[in-house]
Design a protein around this nucleic acid. Structure first.
Lengths: 171, 171
DNA sequence: TCAAATTACTTTACGCCTAAACTATATCCT
DNA sequence: AGGATATAGTTTAGGCGTAAAGTAATTTGA
């Protein structure tokens, strides 16, 4: 918290400079938010209309798709960056609907292994294909040769934020 | 929906090309989502811890800050890109807490004008300053001279998606 | 003029999300 | 061994988000 306020540059226009920097960073944040919510809203709508599904449910299946032997439940909150409590009812419903199974581990009865069913995998693959096509359609107008550059910049943003958070955590 | 599937390029490797394009677009989407949720989570945490406030409430005040004469309630869903029903309880609570006022219009009794109170404005300004500083802190490691380029790219993404949505709407 | 359509907003039902408290199991340590 | 601590997961309370149905005021138009 103290960082931004208490390490002013040598310039004499500290306040103005800080204001300008704030505005630039805020602008970036607003653009990020606008792009994400625009795309997210449309993906949400299509998942609902075409598959009667939600994105969080899809995200869980996506994590399981590459783990044929299943996944420890505790891995999901980390990978999906959501809270553990949030996942309980989502996983519950995926089990009810027959897309995944949930089995207690024999070695540690606190731990549960979740695993995609054959039916779940089939459904997921179908949705994943649509998901890719929807994104390609929505982003079609953005020149393909700029995609990698943008992804790289976003990776750098992500790294910068992560570092800032870690730094803060150690304090 | 048909677009991505039924307008293949002249190349002979249609399926593979499409898959590769899907992956590139999906990668961009995942990065966008990661950056946004990383920053959003941290901003949410700080709003709660330092001001016992939430981002949606802050967003409403931000819209009102530049409208000294108040705003028609119906403008908010458009500007904030959220549903009208969602705003009702948020506005209710901001009124209860004394940050804004809500007055029925004399000309059209369906319409309500909302307006920030003096107290609301004071609180908002304080929070807005922190908000800017938080973002500057989180993004500090990202080189400033790349900010504008990234913002420009995101503007192009936004425009591309908007066009794709309009295009779809007319269909 | 007055019934039909439109507009502004609210309500309802339901899912996602968090933080914080809780349960059950496992591990650590004396 | 057996109490303190840690870990895996669930539950609870409460805010945000949507879609769809409902209410009240206004406008349209035959």
């Amino acid at each position: 918290m103290a960082l931004a306020k208490e390490s002013p540059p040598a310039s004499s226009k500290n306040a103005a400079d800080a204001e300008a920097a704030y505005r630039a960073h805020t602008r970036l944040w607003l653009r990020l938010l606008a792009c994400t919510s625009l795309i997210e809203g449309e993906l949400r709508r299509r998942f609902r209309e075409e598959y009667d599904f939600t994105m969080p449910r899809f995200d869980v299946l996506a994590q399981l798709d590459r783990e044929p032997s299943g996944l420890v439940l505790g891995e999901l909150p980390k990978r999906l960056m959501v809270s553990a409590g949030n996942l309980t009812p989502i996983v519950d419903r995926l089990v009810e609907d027959g897309y995944i199974t949930r089995t207690p581990s024999n070695l540690d009865r606190r731990v549960q292994i979740i695993c995609m069913t054959v039916e779940g995998r089939k459904t997921f693959r179908r949705m994943a294909k649509s998901h890719g096509a929807w994104l390609a359609e929505l982003l079609a107008e953005f020149p393909e040769n700029r995609l990698d550059g943008l992804v790289g910049a976003l990776d750098d943003v992500k790294g910068a934020v992560r570092n800032a958070l870690q730094h803060r955590e150690r304090t």
